[in-house]
């Protein structure tokens, strides 16, 4: 059939293929730009909320205020699953839900308290890098209290759009850091999935 087509007959096909490729590339660029915009706005909004808070405010109070924004940026289910690593399979579906709730609370509380400072941190976000398989990496620099930190956000596509599944601060990955800690808990109490949940609950105790 292709042999029967005259050279001029290929033109519409070539145009269609080129057009599709260009529109796909443009769509991918738009998606990554959108991911950067969502991340940047989310982080800035969270900092704006925390700016109004006084240092010394309970982290549980800060967490409640920031959680709605954090849930728009972070995929806590994915972060928890990755951080728990092999321990994730040991948990029942009910325990997994509980783990996501507890771990997201730990993360929010740990991080919000560090942003309640007198100085507004200066954030610079760079262009997203495509990691393939529906993943992106957005590098940023946080300038706060006289020091500059390199913070890399790793995002993945989900049904709700781009969400962060790992944060890499100065070369140290959040997921890797917690995975090694959860692995230690798992090795200390093999087969005891409650020990993991208890470790998380203990971590939330004031």
């Amino acid at each position: 059939m292709l042999q029967n087509l005259k050279p001029s007959g290929f033109a519409p096909i070539v145009a269609l293929v080129c057009g599709s490729s260009i529109s796909l590339a443009a769509s991918a660029t738009n998606q990554s730009s959108n991911a950067k915009a969502v991340l940047e706005h989310g982080v800035r909004d969270a900092i704006s909320i925390l700016e109004k808070e006084k240092s010394g405010t309970a982290s549980s109070v800060l967490s409640k205020k920031v959680r709605p924004i954090a849930e728009k940026i972070f995929n806590f289910e994915s972060i928890t699953r990755k951080a728990l690593g092999q321990s994730w399979k040991d948990l029942s579906p009910e325990q997994q839900k509980q783990a996501v709730a507890l771990f997201s609370e730990i993360l929010i509380r740990k991080y919000v308290s560090h942003f309640v400072t007198d100085n507004k941190p200066q954030l610079t976000f760079l262009s997203p890098q495509d990691l393939g398989n529906g993943r992106l990496e957005i590098s940023s620099t946080t300038l706060s209290g006289g020091n500059s930190y390199s913070v890399i956000y790793r995002l993945e596509t989900s049904s709700t759009g781009w969400r962060v599944y790992d944060v890499n601060i100065e070369g140290v990955s959040l997921v890797s850091n917690y995975r090694s800690q959860f692995d230690s808990v798992r090795q200390r109490s093999p087969g005891n999935s409650e020990a993991l949940l208890q470790a998380m609950k203990d971590s939330l105790q004031p």
Partner: peptide, 17 residues
């Protein structure tokens, strides 16, 4: 910037417990 110490530690310094 104020002379207060930096409050944002890298992730490796944040213990689970």
């Amino acid at each position: 910037s104020s002379p207060t110490p930096e409050k944002t530690p890298p992730a490796e310094e944040i213990p689970l417990k």
